[in-house]
């Protein structure tokens, strides 16, 4: 995984709450067996609407999504994270993420930055007033910044220490865990024999 320290890119205001993973990518797009190519299904139901924000050329090349609360609820599909990444997003800013989505983002290298609801509101207002404006997410200092002058927005975001460290270092989780293989083996020896197994000798 690539290291993530800071990213600056065009921000998109997605003025919706409860954006579940079926909205991010519907089930019919989940038939692929690769991790790429899911951008075609991203927000597919809304992309037909010419007024949908991603269809506005002013936000072309966007890479920071700013969404309402309860983003990524529902299905555990990591395809939702891949679809956002395949489309070009590096970070999602929201006031509340569903647990599984947040976990998946951390594993796949998409930054899920949780901010206060007021910050989302301010970012929406700014990005709508100045389409194409950039947003910076700084993982080192856990801050989100946008705009200039008196209207500039600067606030902190939440991310758990462990995920932050892994993203900053670009570390592979499995590699870390395999470093503790002895602990796993020791644990396995303590399991009671009546625990079920799927294969029988």
């Amino acid at each position: 995984m690539d290291k993530f320290t800071q990213h600056t890119g065009v921000g998109v205001p997605l003025r919706r709450s409860n954006v579940d993973t079926d909205q991010i990518i519907p089930a019919v797009y989940l038939k692929r067996v690769t991790r790429s190519g899911f951008e075609d299904g991203l927000f597919s139901a809304w992309r037909n609407d010419p007024d949908f924000v991603l269809n506005d050329p002013a936000y072309a090349g966007c890479s920071v999504l700013v969404a309402g609360p309860d983003f990524g609820t529902g299905s555990s599909r990591e395809h939702a994270v891949w679809a956002l990444q395949n489309y070009g997003f590096k970070a999602v800013v929201s006031s509340r993420f569903a647990d599984i989505f947040r976990g998946n983002s951390g594993k796949a290298g998409l930054l899920a930055a949780q901010v206060d609801e007021k910050v989302v509101q301010k970012l929406w207002d700014l990005l709508e007033a100045q389409p194409g404006a950039t947003v910076t997410v700084d993982l080192e200092s856990r801050t989100v910044r946008a705009g200039e002058g008196p209207d500039a927005i600067e606030d902190s975001f939440d991310i758990d220490d462990y995920t932050r460290w892994r993203l900053l270092e670009g570390l592979d989780d499995i590699g870390i865990t395999l470093g503790h293989a002895d602990d796993i083996t020791a644990y396995e020896q303590t399991r009671p024999r009546w625990k079920p197994a799927t294969l029988h000798a």
């Binding site: 555990s76 599909r77 990591e78 994270v81 599984i100 976990g103 594993k107 796949a108 499995i174 865990t177």
Partner: peptide, 10 residues
């Protein structure tokens, strides 16, 4: 509980 594909691999 449910997990994503990276965790399935893990």
């Amino acid at each position: 509980f449910g997990i994503g594909t990276s965790e399935v691999e893990h």
